[in-house]
């Protein structure tokens, strides 16, 4: 399975980026190879509005099955849910820590967005 983590840097040692839509980077982790690929989120960072929607489409294009992040808004959540991408929320500080919690089955799948939507 493929999992996207929202990250402030380019490796699993980086700090998690709490935001989904405007995350600095996405880390794509592939469970079959254990490989980590950095996925750009610049398009969403530059978006005047709809960053979460854009970011969700980036995740879907990467073929990810799940997202691990801290905050996910309602529009992004709807797009991810519609595409069958699961969302896992964590307060872990580091990406490696978040991934470990996920692999240990300690993260619960979110059934709703956990932050409010906004306009810009």
């Amino acid at each position: 399975m493929k999992v996207i983590l929202t990250s402030q840097g380019d490796s699993l040692d980086a700090a998690m980026d709490a935001r989904f839509g405007r995350a600095a980077k996405f880390l794509l982790w592939d469970s079959s190879t254990q490989a980590v690929t950095v996925v750009d989120n610049q398009q969403s960072l530059d978006a005047p509005q709809g960053a979460g929607i854009q970011a969700a489409m980036t995740v879907i294009k990467q073929g990810a099955n799940a997202v691990i992040t801290s905050h996910c808004g309602p529009k992004a959540f709807r797009v991810l849910q519609e595409a069958g991408v699961k969302v896992y929320l964590t307060k872990a500080a580091k990406c490696r820590e978040a991934l470990q919690l996920f692999q240990d089955g300690k993260l619960q799948e979110a059934s709703n967005a956990n932050v409010e939507g906004h306009w810009t």
């Binding site: 509005q49 709809g50 797009v79 519609e82």
Partner: peptide, 11 residues
């Protein structure tokens, strides 16, 4: 330019 649409597959 306002990111109103989200598309994936034929949806």
């Amino acid at each position: 330019r306002f990111n109103v649409l989200a598309g994936f597959g034929r949806k």
